[in-house]
């Protein structure tokens, strides 16, 4: 069963009379539970593709079906509801809310789902990523690796059907990066989540089941590992 289906997807930015096509007629499907990497050089359109697939932005033409819902037919607030229900995110620069503690950051997606056990569940996840004792710390009081672990706990909190990760180890040293990779893949396996990774790192990409190479806004290669 396809969790994500991308058809004839294009994104063009207009600046005055000039227009720039960042994605051009992209097509692919992702099966539920699959792990996939999108790789390509800087400016190739991979972040744009991730944003469109996750419903963060709207396409110029084409369609994205996420868990059976056509995102282009939804308003921004409806897409927000889809993100809350079905999608998890891990960012290169962690994107924790600086005014919330580690625990509160993890609680947000659960609270949005009106889960009564938000606190217990969030604490459990923090324990799982090894930060049970840092729950009351604010992001500025945590190291980069710790912040990314909080971000992972938050991403898995709402038990998403699909997880999007944008260069999740890009801001970390090798050792910490490897630890984070392991955490992501372990949790992914445990929860049976679909994983879409955007990365420059070919070694990291090699750990996924499928790699999509993108260049100049077009898919160059779509290969299973």
């Amino acid at each position: 069963m396809n969790i994500l289906s991308v058809k004839d997807l294009s994104k063009t930015y207009k600046s005055g009379s000039r227009s720039l096509t960042v994605l051009d007629q992209v097509n692919f499907d992702i099966q539920a539970g699959e792990t996939i990497s999108i790789v390509g050089p800087s400016g190739s359109g991979k972040t744009t593709l991730l944003g469109l697939c996750a419903g963060l932005d709207s396409a110029s033409t084409g369609s994205v079906q996420l868990n059976g819902q056509a995102l282009e037919k939804l308003s921004e607030d409806q897409r927000a509801a889809v993100r809350n229900q079905d999608v998890g995110f891990i960012f290169q620069n962690f994107q924790l809310l600086p005014t919330l503690t580690a625990l509160e950051n993890v609680m947000v997606p659960l609270e949005l789902k009106k889960r009564k056990d938000a606190r217990t569940k969030a604490l459990e996840l923090l324990e799982k990523v090894g930060l049970g004792d840092r729950a009351t710390h604010y992001p500025t009081q945590l190291s980069g690796g710790e912040q990314q672990r909080v971000s992972i706990a938050r991403a898995f909190a709402n038990e998403p059907k699909i997880l999007f990760a944008d260069e999740p180890t890009g801001n970390l040293d090798t050792e910490t990066g490897e630890m984070i990779e392991k955490l992501i893949f372990d949790l992914n396996k445990e929860k049976g989540t679909t994983l879409v990774l955007v990365t420059h790192d070919t070694e990291l990409a090699g750990k996924t089941q499928r790699i999509i190479h993108i260049k100049g806004g077009k898919i160059q290669e779509d290969a299973h590992a």
Binding site: D77, A81, R83, N84, Q85, F89, Q95, L97, V108, R154
Partner: peptide, 15 residues
């Protein structure tokens, strides 16, 4: 603005 973008990403409506 960065925090707002994260909240929006996590599924909070603009309102």
């Amino acid at each position: 603005l960065a925090s707002v973008a994260v909240l929006r990403c996590l599924g909070v409506s603009s309102r």
